[in-house]
Write a protein that binds this DNA or RNA. Structure first.
Lengths: 350, 350
DNA sequence: CTGAAAGCGCTTACAG
DNA sequence: CTGAAAGCGCTTACAG
């Protein structure tokens, strides 16, 4: 019982193979009556074209590559797996598959080249988060459409889907200022990641805008380290800031994971949150609403990032000559207990 | 600049296309000298066969489908995304791609059939976690090799990768008994999920084995609900058990997410953990080590589950006639603060 | 151990 | 608007 092919459909419908192809691929002109007749046969026999044959004949694969660093996938899965989910949902609308792969810290062709690039098994590539810049350069030279999500190469012009990191952090600080906090610190890991950098800049700008130059400029308010943004860093950073005597009354964190470490450190030191020290995260991953106290944070619509990345990819595929694009995803401050003691406790989960 | 093909390699190496194919696919007999000569040309020109051509010619796709419920992917991503990662790592070893897709709560062919099944774009399928049983039945009829991970169809015989749910829960209870707890409750959502059911059975068996029949049999010690295992369920269940006056001194939870809800409820009711009530989770997701107190739980090696699933798939592909297999993954109890007050607080993260 | 040739199931100019 | 035919880049019996 071999599977039904386009030939069978053509024979049964009494038309040529070419015409069936025109119908299944939804291109070219086919009379309504012919189209209908063919469509009926296709539905009846549950025909579905083989992707491999299409790819071989057309040169288009119908696949999008999705590259993530090992760390992001196994560590920060809470963030990027949702970006991936959004991408997957959007890709499905046009019958594209997403091929996921991870890359390590270093990138040396040809060994580290993702297999779907070697085999040219994708029409375009999405890169999410931090990756070695050599990989981006490699992609660039490949002439394959690609978009960077939540990351940028310092010198290369690329299609981008970015978060309003600057504005998000700005609003976080403004919120603290409105609540009367004045000695606002910053803890962040992985400051080589462009997003964290932007957040720090937004933080500084907001402080200056509020006349709090001291916190903005004084290094004793900041703990920045060139490592992945783990909760360990938040813990270490918080302890460090407390011990350095900058006497902060609140803290903005590079992301939620870092903020979790801050919460732990504050509990260890018997600080009340938010009375002694208020805490703000960034990302709004699921667990931000499960900590004790729950975490005020900057919400990032992760699904939307994946969706926009795929839409941008489709744009590039459909219009190869189009200009570079940047799509900026808005953030939204979510106020919870870690900055607002008056929010009543509840068992609600997201 | 069109890409290099097998023909080019053959021409340059001075051999036939067939021989090159024998080398790239690593099958059949080729003399060492010929093989070496061809390999050199391949390396020099960075040749990599096109998957689509291979698939079309051979009938093998080199892809494995991975099906996950929408809920599991977007909600319990902490668990199954690691299973996926393990599968991806293992698949890569044999140059297979994994095509991920999600399915909803209901399954009605042909609309809900994953596209990679319609298009026969996969050689085998992994199903992780709960899915509609109609989907499993559909796969069964398709004659496509498949393995179920952490789930089973009530009546269908399938290849399985399962967790030691029963034993894991048994050990969790035994641990509590050893620490002197006697009135041990159970909170679990989604008891239609076979894993949670097994855990409950292991819990009951351990109680009986310890002479604690009362807790095992008495419904006032249990909160079981036919819903997805969210933290909300843990919260509601804990409150319910406290109010029902079964006077429990400890609780075993269907999974970690549920346990997080229990922790919240206990805090709301000003119970000390573990002095008043000890809490044990199941799964050991990353955040089990970030809660306050950190969560004692049954560690499940998630990467290993994905790896074993793919190895089982390869077995099925290589030996189509092989018998059904079940691979059982061992668990390990991880003792943290929620059952052991003496563990010192620290900022360590996993 | 190696080569010639058919064939996998589509798409795509090109005619008509 | 529709059809005949070439061709995409491999694998696979089949000979030798």
């Amino acid at each position: 019982m071999s599977r039904i092919t386009i030939k069978d459909i053509a024979r049964i419908a009494g038309v040529s193979v070419s015409t069936v192809s025109l119908v299944t691929s939804n291109r070219g002109y086919v009379s309504d009556s012919t189209r209908e007749k063919i469509q009926k046969v296709i539905t009846k026999h549950n025909y579905y074209p083989r992707q491999s044959a299409r790819t071989l004949a057309s040169g288009r694969t119908g696949n999008i590559g999705f590259i993530l660093s090992d760390f992001h996938f196994s560590g920060s899965e809470f963030f990027y797996s949702r970006v991936f989910l959004g991408a997957e949902m959007e890709a499905r609308k046009r019958d594209f598959y997403i091929l996921l792969t991870t890359v390590g810290d270093s990138f040396e062709p040809p060994v580290d080249v993702p297999r779907f690039l070697k085999g040219r098994d994708v029409d375009a590539v999405i890169i999410a988060g931090t990756v070695p810049k050599e990989l981006i350069e490699y992609l660039h030279e490949l002439q394959l459409p690609y978009v960077l999500v939540d990351f940028r190469h310092p010198s290369l012009k690329s299609n981008l889907v970015m978060i309003e990191n600057y504005t998000g952090a700005f609003e976080a600080v403004t919120h603290l200022v409105e609540y009367g906090y004045k000695r606002i610190g910053f803890v962040g890991g992985s400051s080589f990641h462009s997003s964290i950098k932007e957040r720090f800049r937004g933080y500084q700008a907001a402080l200056r805008a509020s006349g709090l130059e001291k916190a903005a400029e004084d290094g004793s308010f900041h703990y920045l380290i060139e490592e992945e943004a783990t909760s360990q860093i938040g813990f270490d950073g918080m302890i460090d800031l407390l011990d350095r005597g900058s006497n902060i009354d609140s803290i903005v964190c590079g992301n939620d994971t870092t903020a979790f470490g801050c919460l732990q450190a504050l509990k260890l030191r018997n600080k009340n949150i938010p009375e002694d020290i208020a805490v703000v995260g960034f990302d709004d991953i699921v667990y931000a609403n499960e900590t004790d106290p729950t975490l005020t944070t900057v919400h990032v619509p992760k699904l939307e990032m994946g969706i926009q990345a795929v839409r941008l990819i489709f744009d590039l595929i459909d219009h190869p000559a189009s200009n570079l694009q940047s799509r900026i995803i808005n953030t939204e401050l979510v106020i919870r207990e870690s900055t607002n003691g008056s929010i009543s406790e509840s068992g609600e989960s997201s």
